[in-house]
């Protein structure tokens, strides 16, 4: 039984109940470039079952590595812990790479509905639900149909088709099931089709070859970030509406300046590092 994990920038902790082979017999590769070996400079015994391998190249705790021994043919995969990946994806898509303030997506809807707090919350909730559903459906379609059939060039058409169909279906179902709910959230559903975030999530997932849980985490994190951005913005805009703003800045221009200030404060999150 052999286990290994990255513990430092140049260090791997190997947990083995058999004597480890010499450093020269170990082969370490990054799973993405499996034919480029990374150099292991030393292998030190820490105690009876633990060894520390030192590498020349810097390692990243978020990457996947494959460590194999040429002496006895054993190999072990080094992967970051599952839940810390999910949490990192959620935090990074919600705060560090907030779609509105650092990637500038979904701005049309963002400026359109962030005038009042009530509409901002309504849109945020509706959007989060639809985005996670759409993210899931697009991932399934991409993973089981587009990738195996090599139809990657159809991504845009397929994803926007799913989103449009999902929105249409949700609208029809909610209208039949609960009229009150429809009156409250129906208008937001229609607007979602023109929100680029809903399309950006599956496209980013497809580009990153994300797994199902990572794809769902990205969908959840980014729609949460979007809802957060809209809520913050609506609070500020309600105050600005009362303030004596110069006539030429009234309405959208001042909203843009506000968004700029928010974007500056969100820059602060770029120092946040997980793992």
């Amino acid at each position: 039984m052999v286990e290994a994990k990255v513990i430092g920038k140049h260090e791997i902790m190997i947990n083995a109940d058999i004597p480890a082979p010499a450093a020269a017999n170990l082969r370490l590769v990054n799973e993405q470039d499996a034919d480029i070996p990374l150099t292991i400079t030393a292998l030190n015994k820490k105690d009876e079952h633990h060894y520390i391998a030192t590498t020349a190249e810097p390692l990243s705790a978020t990457d996947h590595y494959l460590l194999s021994s040429q002496a006895n043919g054993m190999s072990v995969t080094l992967a970051p812990p599952f839940f810390s990946v999910l949490i990192a994806v959620i935090i990074s898509s919600a705060l560090i790479n907030n779609f509105v303030f650092t990637r500038y997506l979904g701005l049309c809807v963002f400026f359109g509905v962030s005038r009042r707090r009530e509409t901002a919350i309504g849109m945020g909730v509706t959007f989060s639900i639809v985005a996670v559903l759409a993210g899931f459906l697009c991932w399934v379609l991409n993973h089981f149909a587009l990738v195996p059939l090599k139809l990657g060039f159809l991504q845009i058409i397929a994803f926007i088709g799913i989103v449009a169909a999902l929105v249409q279906a949700a609208e029809t179902i909610i209208k039949k099931v609960n009229v009150v709910l429809y009156k409250k959230f129906g208008i937001f559903l229609v607007l979602i089709t023109t929100n680029c975030i809903i399309l950006a999530i599956p496209l980013l997932n497809a580009t990153a070859h994300a797994g199902l849980w990572e794809a769902l985490a990205l969908a959840f994190g980014s729609s949460f970030g979007f809802a957060l951005a809209m809520y913050l913005m609506s609070c500020a805009r309600e105050k600005v509406d009362m303030a004596p703003v110069p006539a030429i800045f009234k309405g959208l221009p001042i909203a843009f300046i506000l968004a700029g200030l928010f974007a500056m404060s969100f820059l602060g999150f770029s120092g946040l590092k997980f793992m």
């Binding site: 303030f101 650092t102 500038y104 110069p246 006539a247 030429i248 800045f249 009234k250 309405g251 959208l252 221009p253 001042i254 909203a255 843009f256 300046i257 968004a259 700029g260 200030l261 974007a263 500056m264 969100f266 820059l267």
Partner: peptide
């Protein structure tokens, strides 16, 4: 990132200002 928002906001205000100079009534928020 923040600069993009500022620039667009300023250009929008500029468009409004041109309208004002040409004697048009400002629309209620561009």
């Amino acid at each position: 990132p923040a600069g993009g928002f500022f620039t667009i906001g300023l250009i929008m205000a500029l468009f409004n200002w041109i309208d004002l100079m040409r004697g048009k009534k400002l629309s209620s928020g561009g």
